[in-house]
Every structure is written in C-alpha cells, then in structure tokens.
C-alpha cells in the first residue's frame, strides 16, 4: 500500500474523530464523514491546518445518496480509498416499550444499515487497493445491552455482517474486522453502576479505541481478518468483584 487514504464515518467527534487524528498523524489522507454540524468541518479544518490532507464530507449514513456522494468526493479528491472506518452511534432508545417500529427502523438505519451502505459503496475501492475495513461497535455486539435491546440487535448485526464480509473478501486481499468498545468517556446514562463493573476503574478514552482501530488498519494486523477485537478495560472478561 503506497499511500493510506481513509474514509471515516462518524468522524466529527468521539472515537471517529480520534481515529481521524491518529490516521492523519501517521500520514494518511483522511475524509471525515458526519452529519451537518456534527464537527467534521471543524475537525477537517484543524487537521488541514496541522498539515494533514483532510476532507470534510457532510451527510447522513441513513441516506444511500449521501454515502455515495461522499465516497465519490473522497475518490475525486484523493484518488482512491484504502481504509474505511465506521464508528457506530452510541445512543439508542430504551426498552421495548419505547421502540415503536419507526424508532426501531430509524435506529437500525443509521447503525447496521449504515454499515451496509458504507461497505457497499466502498467495496470496489477497497478491492482495488486491497484495503481494510473496520467497524467500531460497542460491547453490545458480543453481550447484551441492558435496557437497550435495539443497541444489542444493531451491534450483533454489525458483528455478523462485517465478519462475513471478511470471509467473503479476504481471499481478495481486503480485511474486515470489528472493534467492540466498552463505554466511552462521556457517553450515556447509568454511569456509576457501569463503572463498577470495569476492572480498569474508568471508561475508555476515544484515543484508546482509536489505537485498536489504528492497529487493525495497519500492516501489523495483516493476518487478522473477520474477527471481533474487544477494548473494554476487562469488563467483558467475566464477573468482576472488586477487592475492597
């Protein structure tokens, strides 16, 4: 791979933004895709001012047209795409009683179906560049998501979908992996109770998740394909009973 060109979905904030920074720091050209006013413009401007090649792409992953236009704009600007990162949304509506069908559909549309749209639109470019694809999901991809069944459904769906893409396209030199991250600093409610179950005693910093994404999109992970890699401070290892 001569030059790394990354297309990052959800790049306006959080893990997506941290990933954009990490990849730009290692010399990649980065396209930052996010919704209007979600921070991608400012982030791209800042990265550009720091000397990186950065492009902001405004759009909604729930729109096939938006995704296609952003992918096309990235290829027009940088020539190809070698790395795709999808940072999944972190907030979902609550228990089943709150999940009207429209709400359910809307949530799947910007998570699981978003991964589908991005994978579908970027695949030709990844096949041409023998690139890598990483979806960042939450630990709800491998466990439950307490009082958020839609999150568990979406994340399990992302895991199954992306691992299968790794099977289907691995022999063509494109690797697909999923990162399942523990709660990130600043996300959601019920913080204290969740914190008590984490051996690390703190939530993940976006940059720590980005490091795992960085590894999975680098040559250092050349034999890692169709896997789920967790970054959760030990919370998924089992029942945790603190000493004191």
């Amino acid at each position: 791979m001569d030059r790394e060109i990354a297309f990052i979905v959800g790049a306006g904030s959080g893990t997506g933004l941290a990933t954009a920074r990490l990849l730009a720091d290692r010399g990649a050209a980065v396209a930052l895709f996010d919704r209007r006013d979600a921070g991608a413009e400012e982030a791209a401007a800042k990265l550009g001012a720091g000397g990186a090649e950065a492009l902001a792409c405004e759009g909604d992953v729930a729109s096939t047209d938006d995704v296609r236009l952003a992918v096309d704009a990235t290829v027009a600007e940088f020539g190809s795409i070698t790395t795709v990162v999808f940072d999944s949304p972190t907030t979902f509506p609550g228990e089943l009683e709150h999940l009207d069908e429209g709400v359910w559909q809307a949530n799947l549309d910007r998570s699981l179906s978003g991964v589908y749209r991005v994978a579908r639109q970027t695949l030709p470019h990844l096949l041409a560049s023998r690139g890598t694809f990483v979806a960042v999901a939450s630990m709800a991809g491998v466990r439950t998501s307490y009082r958020e069944p839609a999150a568990a459904a979406a994340m399990h769906g992302i895991v199954g979908f992306v691992r299968t893409l790794g099977q289907d396209h691995g022999s063509k030199g494109v690797r697909f992996n999923v990162v399942c991250a523990g709660p990130i600093e600043g996300d959601g409610d019920g913080r204290e109770r969740r914190l008590a179950a984490i051996p690390a005693g703190r939530f993940a910093r976006p940059a720590e998740v980005a490091e795992v994404v960085g590894h999975l999109t680098s040559a250092d992970s050349s034999y890692t394909n169709a896997t789920v890699q967790t970054v959760d401070g030990g919370a998924g290892a089992g029942f945790f009973a603190p000493d004191d």
């Binding site: 690390a200 034999y223 890692t224 394909n225 970054v231």
Partner: peptide
C-alpha cells in the same frame, strides 16, 4: 503476523485492552 499483534497488545497503545481474546486467524474461525 502474530508477533506484531502481541507487540501491539503489550504496548501502551493497548492501554484499555484487558481480558481480550484476539484471534489472529485470517478469518478461519468466523
């Protein structure tokens, strides 16, 4: 290709990775 993953997991870059099981299998067990 295994050593590079071990090196990553042993490094400060993997500071929040604990108790994780990282398959390095080319996708064989998916």
């Amino acid at each position: 290709e295994v050593a590079s993953v071990v090196d990553f997991l042993s490094s400060p870059a993997a500071s929040y990775v604990n108790g994780s099981v990282y398959l390095v299998d080319g996708g064989a067990n998916a």
